[in-house]
Computed example of a mutant assay.
Amino acid sequence: MQSADPVLVTSGMDEKRWQGLRESGFRIFFVGLFSLVIAFIVYSRLTVPSADPLAVQAQQLSNLAYAVLAITAASMASMLYGVYTIFRAEQMRTAGSDSLISFITGAFANRTYWKIMAVAAIGYGVFFGFLSQILVYRPDVSLTERGVEVSSVDLTLCCAAPGYMPMFTVYITDHFLILIIPLNVILATVVSGLVGFNVALSIFAYRLKKAMRATTSLAGGVGATCGLFVGCPTCAGSLFSALIGVGVAGAGTSASVLAPFQTLFIAASIPALVIAPFLIARSIRSVSNCRLT
């Protein structure tokens, strides 16, 4: 009896392994995504002003709001882990090939670049947080004078487009607060993660042979700059308006008015940040091919 070729057996096992890993990553990602979408839609439907006597009571709505915030956090963690799992599968699948994806994933075989990505993403996230008004510092506004207890938390239950409610506010000091809007935090996480990824990959390319090209830098720069404006700057402004008497309805109106502009900045920033790694990978591949020749 002729024995099976060990090379073919190993190759078949590796293929099943990366396929299984990738399918698992997609399942984890889509479970988180669907959970997030469903939670936003259900909460939005339940918080629409209505004369229905069966409408959700305030206490029940408060509990539901905390549940939605918890689901948002869990769904984000699920999607991030799903993307990481898919990335690992692509590392296995493209190892040793000449594809652009192999040069992108290959850079992160060294843990140093994961650390660089984390530092860059956190740093950019803090910067993004202040510009998008997730982190609000107003030395000219006294929260205590507006009747706000410091330190305390506040939950705004309604009413705005899906993803903007519930708002969770943490009053840290008399002039500093954290305004958590689910959609805003999600966008901040996505943009910051992509910026960190591009920074780490760019440093890898630079260290390889100072291979940064003008096109790559421009694409990454456009994505990072536009990404600063993906968030909803008026959400915090609406909060302060509510403190001085405009009310929650004004916040919802402001968010609705800015929705088209927010979509425009998302369209400009996220695709640029997604395309940038492939442009960087082209420069890495050209440098690698030059070294081989």
Score class of each variant (00 low, 15 high):
residue 262 Q to S: 08
residue 159 C to D: 08
residue 91 Q to T: 14
residue 165 M to L: 04
residue 254 S to E: 07
residue 43 Y to S: 03
residue 118 A to R: 13
residue 34 F to C: 07
residue 228 L to H: 14
residue 287 V to M: 02
residue 226 C to N: 14
residue 82 G to I: 06
residue 67 A to Y: 11
residue 28 I to L: 11
residue 264 L to Q: 04
residue 123 G to F: 04
residue 165 M to Y: 08
residue 291 R to I: 03
residue 93 R to L: 06
residue 221 G to H: 15
residue 214 A to D: 12
residue 135 L to S: 10
residue 17 R to P: 00
residue 187 L to G: 11
residue 95 A to N: 12
residue 201 L to P: 00
residue 219 A to M: 15
residue 224 A to C: 10
residue 164 Y to A: 11
residue 94 T to M: 10
residue 27 R to V: 11
residue 99 S to H: 12
residue 290 C to R: 07
residue 132 S to G: 12
residue 196 G to V: 02
residue 276 A to M: 09
residue 110 N to M: 03
residue 243 L to N: 11
residue 26 F to V: 08
residue 30 F to M: 05
residue 22 R to C: 01
residue 59 Q to K: 12
residue 264 L to R: 04
residue 273 L to E: 01
residue 82 G to L: 04
residue 21 L to Y: 00
residue 250 G to W: 10
residue 10 T to D: 04
residue 149 E to D: 14
residue 278 F to D: 02
residue 109 A to E: 12
residue 74 A to C: 12
residue 205 A to G: 13
residue 283 S to I: 09
residue 143 L to D: 05
residue 216 T to R: 13
residue 125 G to F: 14
residue 174 D to E: 11
residue 57 Q to D: 07
residue 162 P to G: 06
residue 77 A to N: 08
residue 92 M to V: 10
residue 98 D to Q: 15
residue 90 E to I: 02
residue 102 S to I: 08
residue 198 N to H: 07
residue 260 P to W: 04
residue 254 S to Y: 13
residue 219 A to Y: 09
residue 196 G to M: 02
residue 151 S to E: 05
residue 173 T to L: 09
residue 168 F to I: 02
residue 251 A to T: 14
residue 161 A to L: 12
residue 67 A to F: 15
residue 111 R to V: 10
residue 44 S to R: 11
residue 179 L to W: 04
residue 191 V to S: 01
residue 237 G to K: 13
residue 10 T to H: 07
residue 290 C to Y: 09
residue 10 T to V: 04
residue 240 F to C: 11
residue 244 I to D: 12
residue 93 R to G: 00
residue 65 A to Y: 00
residue 52 D to Y: 08
residue 84 Y to C: 03
residue 257 V to E: 05
residue 36 L to Y: 08
residue 238 S to A: 15
residue 88 R to P: 01
residue 219 A to I: 15
residue 30 F to T: 05
residue 102 S to H: 14
residue 248 V to C: 09
residue 221 G to C: 15
residue 79 M to H: 06
residue 80 L to N: 08
residue 118 A to S: 14
residue 79 M to W: 05
